[in-house]
Design a protein around this nucleic acid. Structure first.
Lengths: 213, 213
DNA sequence: GGACGCCTCCCCAGTTTTGGGGATTGCGGT
DNA sequence: ACCGCAATCCCCAAAACTGGGGAGGCGTCC
């Protein structure tokens, strides 16, 4: 039984390139090739693919929306996103819409055939940088409900940290706490050490996300 | 510069097997090999690895707890879980504890060296079935209700804002977005205007508290 | 065509932060 | 009495950020 593949991509060169590549692979059959996703559900119904390669940028209906529609109608079809972009928003939108893999166009070729095979075996092919993003997203999620970690900040350091989060400069903090500018600096250095950060912006982000204030 | 690797695994055969395998790889150096994680933070401090291979089943402290401890003390170290089990609970616990990859023992060997290389390049190596689980988890995630407060930031400004919250400097942002330093400055000025702030720290605080990212 | 927003790049001059060092006091343990 | 540590202060040089300008290209809407 060969694997039937459908391609959605507005660029004809890309479609033809992929088709050419896949034709050299045994057990793979091109079920269809489409330049837009306006009729994607109907197209899929007609061509009955097992796996779909979906571009994100397309006129009319975006690849992400197409994934949602197709998955709704055919939950068992595996969809592999393939795009030039890796901004977080589109990556997660694609995954949430139901994509089973996400690879960047710059390493298509050899990877593509491997990815298709992997999909069929229950895998989830992702380009390395995409996989990392996904893990980071998952790591962020539970932070909102996770037990607060103690960074062993001293009372004075916590006061300084609170001022930093308010957006005060060293000078203003010194003023408010009635200490010298240099003392503020000392506290900040200690905070950097304890929080494993190296700038005020990182400090603020960490302080808020981990509820240190 | 070779990559320093530390191994935590209670099975001596496994430790030795991995060490044997890695010694054949150029640019890889065994920093340490430990049969338990009871002193993991101290062990890591002494052996200074770049990458850690962590088994889950260990007497005393579990590999998952060890990941949490090590990541807290050394956030920059990459940790690769390698275990025989793939039940959901342990997979997600490991990821949430801070692991950067998760591979199954049954395809160690060739995959292991690739995975280590991938980690160093910012990837997140996962066995195919693990990757699939991770994606499914992400798809299940509750859809967070978006707050209606809109500061009318342009798409580009939002990208810049996201970088700022990550703690990147102007230079690093310019690099990541493939624009010049001065353009980043322009965007930041516009963001300051629109958010009514006057420094990066205020910006980060407002962005996180108002969920603008 | 003109107005407007967005994205891109540039200059100058000034302020703030950062990364290295130091140093002193005082307080609480062993 | 000694040690650790929080808290206070100091200096220097480099790097980063800020404010206030200007300017061209591109697209949309009226």
């Amino acid at each position: 039984m060969s694997i039937r593949i459908a391609i959605f991509d507005d660029n004809k060169n890309v479609r033809d390139g992929i088709a050419l590549l896949l034709r050299t692979v045994p057990d793979v059959e091109i079920a269809g090739s489409f330049s837009h996703a306006l009729d994607c559900v109907q197209d899929v119904r007609n061509s009955r693919p097992d796996v779909i390669l979906m571009d994100i940028e397309m006129p009319g209906i975006s690849g992400i929306e197409a994934v949602r529609l197709i998955k709704q109608a055919f939950p068992d079809i595996q969809i592999l996103m393939q795009t030039a972009f890796e901004d977080d928003e589109r990556v997660f939108a694609s995954i949430c819409a139901g994509a089973s893999g996400y690879i960047l166009k710059n390493h298509l070729d050899s990877l593509l055939t491997d990815s298709i095979a992997s999909l069929q075996c229950g895998g989830a092919p992702m380009s390395p940088s995409i996989a990392r993003k996904v893990l980071e997203k998952l790591q962020q999620m539970p932070v909102q409900t996770a037990p607060p970690v103690d960074y062993h900040l001293s009372p004075r350091e916590k006061e300084v940290l609170a001022c930093i989060v308010e957006g005060l400069s060293y000078k203003m903090i010194a003023d408010r706490l009635h200490i010298s500018y240099e003392t503020v600096r000392s506290h900040v250095k200690k905070i950097y050490e304890k929080l494993h950060v190296a700038s005020l912006t990182e400090t603020v982000a960490k302080a808020i996300n981990h509820k240190l204030i």
